[in-house]
């Protein structure tokens, strides 16, 4: 069953993709990415059919083996259920183009009818995801894919955006990427649910895993457990302790255990009530992103009306101290004593 090439109503597109038509699903993912005219209607029609899938974020530094690990996971899931992969790579800040290369590790597994792979460019967003990812995950959920594996751009210390979108996050590390102090810094390590040390065939992999376990245990000792995320209830106190697993994605070792831990985390989310926090955090974050987007386009006009260009010049000429200049700009915009 394939969709005709012409324009299609959002209702029709929704029906087709829910009936398993891959072409319609692929087009819907493009609609939301390009913000096509009726994309909001499409999302609205699909919304009642969402909320079933487990969104699994997979993050980690470039070259740790995220794509290979994900293709192995998809292979296993694909044997019994439909599984989708959203794979994000960075957009060039210079050209606006992108080279999306994660699919190289996934073309075999994408031939299985149960596996849907989509590559996504960040299109100017920091944090390791594109804005469209949020909508695309919703569409894949409505199409009956579960789990949805979301691969962030090669990341580790600042790209924590996926923590908001995903129900479960997996941080993939590899041996030989920096000393013990790297593990002590902030980053995905402290907000991930499962930690994987990939390339377990390397001789120093066990030591890397031991260091990570040590760091995570330190967090618990100091009372700042790894899951005390933005002031929400502490996951560790509610019974989830981050497992640190060893995998060798190329050889396919350790994938069963990872799959089992992902399932266990899902069960724990429901049983502990942490699922509600996840939903709430996700909704608040997405609303924030969308409001910010609208806000920023208005902000520009408001600041220009308040004399933005002149103020930039006085600051560049070192005639004005920047903090005071910013405060005066805000006062002009809001017409009050806003301290910014």
């Amino acid at each position: 069953m394939t969709a005709p090439a012409g324009p299609m109503s959002p209702e029709h597109l929704a029906e087709r993709l829910r009936n398993g038509d891959m072409r319609s699903l692929a087009r819907a993912l493009t609609w939301v990415e390009r913000r096509a005219d009726s994309f909001e209607t499409l999302l609205g029609v699909l919304l009642p059919h969402t909320g079933q899938a487990q969104l699994v974020g997979v993050s980690g530094p470039p070259g740790a083996g995220k794509s290979t690990l994900i293709s192995r996971l998809a292979e296993q899931y694909g044997a019994v259920q439909r599984v989708a992969i959203l794979s994000v790579d960075p957009t060039s800040v210079v050209s606006g183009g992108a080279l999306l290369g994660d699919r190289i590790r996934m073309t075999d597994v994408s031939l299985t009818d149960n596996v849907f792979v989509r590559s996504v460019a960040t299109r100017g967003r920091a944090g390791g995801l594109s804005l469209a990812c949020w909508d695309q995950a919703l569409i894949l959920d409505a199409a009956g894919y579960d789990p949805i594996l979301i691969e962030t751009v090669g990341a580790g210390q600042g790209e924590t955006e996926v923590r908001y979108l995903a129900d479960t996050t997996v941080q993939v590390e590899a041996p030989g990427l920096g000393d013990h102090v790297q593990a002590l810094k902030a980053g995905m390590l402290e907000v991930s649910d499962i930690v994987v040390v990939n390339k377990a065939d390397r001789p120093d992999s066990a030591r890397t895993a031991a260091r990570i376990r040590h760091t995570l245990a330190l967090g618990m000792e100091t009372g700042l457990a790894p899951h005390a995320f933005h002031g929400q209830a502490n996951d560790t106190e509610r019974g989830w302790v981050q497992p640190v697993l060893l995998t060798d994605a190329l050889a396919g070792t350790g994938i069963d255990e990872l799959q089992a831990q992902i399932a266990e985390h899902r069960d724990w989310l429901c049983a502990s009530g942490a699922r509600w926090d996840t939903e709430h955090r996700r909704a608040a974050r997405l609303l924030n992103l969308l409001v910010d987007q609208g806000w920023q386009s208005r902000r520009r006009a408001m600041l220009e009306a308040a004399g933005w260009n002149d103020v930039v010049k006085t600051v560049a000429d070192r005639q004005q101290e920047p903090h005071a200049a910013a405060r005066r700009l805000l006062q002009r915009v809001f017409g009050d004593g806003s301290k910014g």
Binding site: A26, T91, G97, L99, L100, G101, T107, S110, R118
Partner: peptide, 22 residues
């Protein structure tokens, strides 16, 4: 935005990638 498949792709793999990536 360029999606690169890597080497040694069968016609089925290429067509599947074209489909899913729209």
């Amino acid at each position: 935005e360029v999606i690169y498949t890597g080497i040694r792709q069968t016609p089925a793999m290429v067509a599947r990638a074209a489909l899913q990536e729209d």
